[in-house]
Design a protein around this nucleic acid. Sequence first.
DNA 1: CGTTCAGTTGAGTTGCTTCAACCCGTGTGG
DNA 2: CCACACGGGTTGAAGCAACTCAACTGAACG
Lengths: 215, 215
Amino acid sequence: MIGARVAKGTRLRCEGDESNALFYVADGWLAVSKSLEDGERQILDFILPGETYDPTAADGRTSFVEIEALSDAVVVTTDRAVWARLLRHYRDLWDAESLRDIAAHARQSERMLRLGKCSAETRVAYALIELCLRLSACATPNASAFHVPLGQQQLVDFIGLSSVHVCRTLRRLARQGIITTGDHMNITIHDVAALADLAGVDLAVLRAEIIPSVA
Amino acid sequence: MIGARVAKGTRLRCEGDESNALFYVADGWLAVSKSLEDGERQILDFILPGETYDPTAADGRTSFVEIEALSDAVVVTTDRAVWARLLRHYRDLWDAESLRDIAAHARQSERMLRLGKCSAETRVAYALIELCLRLSACATPNASAFHVPLGQQQLVDFIGLSSVHVCRTLRRLARQGIITTGDHMNITIHDVAALADLAGVDLAVLRAEIIPSVA
DNA sequence: CGTTCAGTTGAGTTGCTTCAACCCGTGTGG
DNA sequence: CCACACGGGTTGAAGCAACTCAACTGAACG
């Protein structure tokens, strides 16, 4: 189990020597992504402080994703086998992890639905809401204004639209007074209800599905 | 633990009394999907014989998906707590499940990438390849010809395009001699290489990532 | 023989992308 | 201190991929 500081922008290697590794993020944001040969990239999920991610593919050896630090971060690397033993022994840990797993899975599913079936506006609105929910769950209690440590390019890769169109859509939302964007992706949501409406979600339901509760 | 025969087309309830349930599919195909209020539906994954699925959301109570039997099926319903205990006690079971989990996760990620970034042709090709791989792994050793127990509508909900466009794309592939479609979604892949090429995947790599190996 | 329903095809439309120009804050070297 | 280049974000215009609408086919069934 090795803790390490990683600088913003660093790509974490998940293959070769480091295989069978599993990441625990102590601080900072990571992005998990996959890319095509032509350079197109899709961000699959963000990893927030306190969460773990296992990048191992089904063959148990290689990784199927790329992981990148979106901010300076502190990442702990653990051997999968060791981690598994811990999970088996400590009931609480197991429960907590299983909850986080479920939440991650639910989030990914929700995103797939939007990706496959929704308009640009809905997709953008949904992404903002998801980020807002996750952030307010882990840090700020204030639900409406938050800072996203992402460039537009990352947001774009997350949403799955062209940067041009994402930009347009954000501006439209801003013009409608639903959000304000400051410098460097400081986003303030003024009208959460309107945004949730555009995203086609019920805020309370979504939170229950997506955010690991301490039940 | 209750085993039950379910007829093709049945919707499995995952809420209320049946909450905290987890499904093991002994026989037949299930589809896991999510839908929008407007009726649009996205199929998130298929569950094949021998696989399990936990439809529980992060609040531990409600479900966040709909599950439907695509064929007549035999489904075993288990309490999550009981299942968790089994997993903790039987190391082999835990390993196998964790492998399946990883594979499912890798599949879903791969699909998200296609959903967000790829053309219709690529998405259709990829879907066919994935189905083919999974089927040939679990049943037919013959990789090229297989029967998909799906109507076009299901395939459409899986791929995330309009039925019209999926149809066109399939016909185009057929005209190019890459596949043949028989009655009721009997699909034969004549040129796996060409299809993999269109899908933008390396067949061997994909198999390693997506299919739980018995390693 | 008529009805129904899944799949197929054509024609017109739209939403997103692409391309290209531009703006502006930041860093850099003369 | 100014000139300049640079990169991220914004905007306009044009193109194209996928969607919608609508008509048709053919198999399945009473």
